[in-house]
Amino acid sequence: MQLGLDGMPARLVRVTPSRLATWEDCRRRYRLTYLDRPVPPRGGPRAASTLGAVVHTALQAVFGDAPARRSPARAALEVDRRWSSEGFRDDAQAATYRERARTWVADYVERHAVPDAPEPTGEVVGLERWLSAPMGGMVAEGRADRLDDRAGETVVVDYKTGRRVPDADDARRSPALALYALAARRTLRRPCRRVELHHLPSGTIAAAEHDELSLAAHRERAEGTATELGAATDAFEADPGVAESLFPPAPGPRCASCDVRRHCPEGRAAAPAEPAWAGLAP
């Protein structure tokens, strides 16, 4: 147990990978997203996010069923059932990506999820599994896309549908995957070292095997970030007038797609707004 300066137990900072990433990316966006009340209006839906959500929920439905009931046709049907056209340029673009999503998910299920699949995933032990575990001065939380059991070890699987094809370095450097691995070990009480990024558009898997040193490094960085954002949050809640000094903007190219750019003059000046369909995989 950690003790505060007054000898009382210190408050554990609850963080998710998204909170940590937002803090490191732009502190103003962190405040606008997580702290301001009432919550400032956001930007409209983006096609890439819509597409990713459809693919994720379709795969959750397929992997949540018995292996004998899984099939490429069933996977494509799940995309149809969950489809949304929010954020796409027009009906034609939405129809194109709907068909692509059907193909991506069907091919993925055929390779990994049907009986006698050429690249079987192993036993699925978690789908959209909420993980929460105390680690030093923080409680790391988050929802893992999928957890597999392979030869008695848990493997963290994260689905990707964006433009960029991830590689093994991306998997190794991912703070989110490392925190999920650490939390899964605490929650499921079994080894968890391997993390994987499954990129549906390219059909590739980027994998990394963590060791104790690499996981400890991820944890140390996350704890440091959690301490910073926790202290800033406490100061802001005590005196909202410190907002500008504690939560400055970090203007740059990524401001083009920021969903709170309407509330940030520096962000609007840094980059013109991208259309809602920017970021779709080609």
Score class of each variant (00 low, 15 high):
D145A: 04
R193A: 12
D169S: 05
R111H: 03
L200Q: 10
L229G: 06
L147E: 10
S202G: 04
Q93W: 02
R193Y: 15
R194I: 01
G137T: 10
L179W: 08
Q93G: 03
L131P: 11
V139D: 08
R164E: 13
R89M: 11
P201R: 12
A181W: 03
T96A: 08
E86S: 15
H218F: 02
G87L: 05
V165F: 01
P134A: 08
A95K: 14
A232M: 09
I205F: 05
A95F: 00
R185M: 05
D148C: 03
R163P: 01
A117W: 07
E123M: 00
A208H: 12
G230F: 02
V165Q: 09
E196A: 06
Y159E: 15
R190I: 00
R146W: 07
L229Q: 14
A95C: 03
D116S: 10
A181S: 14
T204K: 07
Y97L: 00
P191A: 10
V124P: 02
L215R: 13
P118E: 03
S132W: 10
L213P: 03
E209H: 11
A144T: 12
D167K: 07
V124C: 14
W104K: 12
L131W: 10
E223G: 08
A101F: 05
D158S: 01
P166W: 00
L127E: 12
T204I: 06
T103W: 06
A140R: 04
H198V: 08
L131R: 11
A226N: 09
A92R: 15
D148W: 01
E123N: 09
R193V: 03
R172W: 05
T121K: 01
E128H: 12
R89H: 09
P118N: 03
T204M: 03
T204Y: 06
A217N: 09
A133T: 13
R163Y: 00
E123D: 13
F88R: 07
Y180R: 07
W130D: 13
A184P: 03
G87S: 05
P166T: 04
E128N: 11
H199G: 04
D116N: 14
G152D: 14
L200Y: 08
R98S: 01
A140F: 04
R98Q: 14
A168E: 15
L200C: 02
T204Q: 14
E141A: 06
D107I: 00
E212K: 02
T225K: 01
R189N: 13
G203N: 05
T225L: 02
V114Y: 10
A207E: 15
V157I: 10
A95T: 11
L147W: 04
T103R: 15
E228Y: 00
Q93L: 03
K160R: 09
Y159D: 15
P115F: 06
E119Y: 02
L131S: 13
M135I: 10
P191D: 12
E223V: 07
A226D: 11
G152K: 13
H218Q: 05
G137V: 03
D145M: 03
P175R: 07
M135L: 13
W104A: 06
G224S: 12
R186S: 09
V125M: 10
H210N: 08
V156C: 05
R143A: 06
T103C: 09
E128P: 07
A140D: 05
T96P: 00
P201W: 07
A113L: 05
L229A: 08
Y159F: 14
E86H: 10
R164I: 08
L131A: 13
V156L: 05
Y97I: 02
R186V: 02
V165Y: 05
